[in-house]
Computed example of a mutant assay.
Amino acid sequence: MVKLVLMHKAESIYEDEPDAVYDFPRSYLKAVQDAIGDWIVYYEPVKAGPRGYFAVARIERVIPKPGAEGRYLALIQPGSFLPFDTEVPRLRNGRPLEESLTAANGTPLRGGAVQLAVRRLPEGDFARIVDLGLPPELEQMEATRFNPEPAALREEPLTFKRPVIERLTRRNYRDVAFRRKVRDAYDFRCAMSGLRLRNGGGRPEVQAAHIRPVERQGSDSVRNGLALSGTLHWMFDRGLISIAEDCETILVSRNKVPGDVVDRLLSPNGKLHKPEDPRNSPHPANLRWHRENIFGQIMPGEPVPWN
Rank of each mutant, 00 (worst) to 15 (best):
P268G: 14
R254E: 14
N280H: 12
L228E: 03
D246G: 08
I298V: 06
S229A: 15
P268M: 14
G218W: 08
H273V: 09
H290C: 08
R212M: 15
Q217G: 13
P213S: 12
D277E: 14
A285W: 04
S242A: 12
D277N: 13
P284K: 14
L251S: 06
L240S: 01
L240H: 04
E215Y: 13
G201L: 07
E245V: 10
E292T: 08
E292V: 11
Q207P: 07
V206W: 03
D246N: 00
D263E: 11
H283W: 13
S281Q: 11
R291T: 11
R288F: 06
L272Q: 02
L232G: 11
I294L: 14
R279N: 05
D277K: 13
D220L: 03
G202P: 07
S229K: 04
G239I: 00
R264E: 05
D246P: 00
P268N: 14
F295I: 06
E248L: 10
M299D: 13
L240N: 05
N280L: 12
Q217N: 15
R288W: 06
G202L: 11
A244T: 08
S219T: 10
P300V: 00
T249L: 01
A227P: 00
H283K: 12
R203K: 06
T249C: 05
G239W: 00
I243R: 01
V261T: 02
S267V: 05
A208I: 01
R216M: 15
S281W: 06
D277Y: 12
N293S: 08
G218M: 06
D263V: 09
V206A: 00
K274S: 05
E292M: 11
D220R: 01
W289V: 15
M299Q: 15
A285V: 14
L232F: 03
S242T: 10
L232I: 08
T231P: 02
W289T: 12
G230I: 11
D246F: 03
S219W: 04
K256H: 13
T249R: 02
E292D: 12
V262T: 11
L232N: 08
I298F: 03
D246R: 00
R238K: 13
P300H: 01
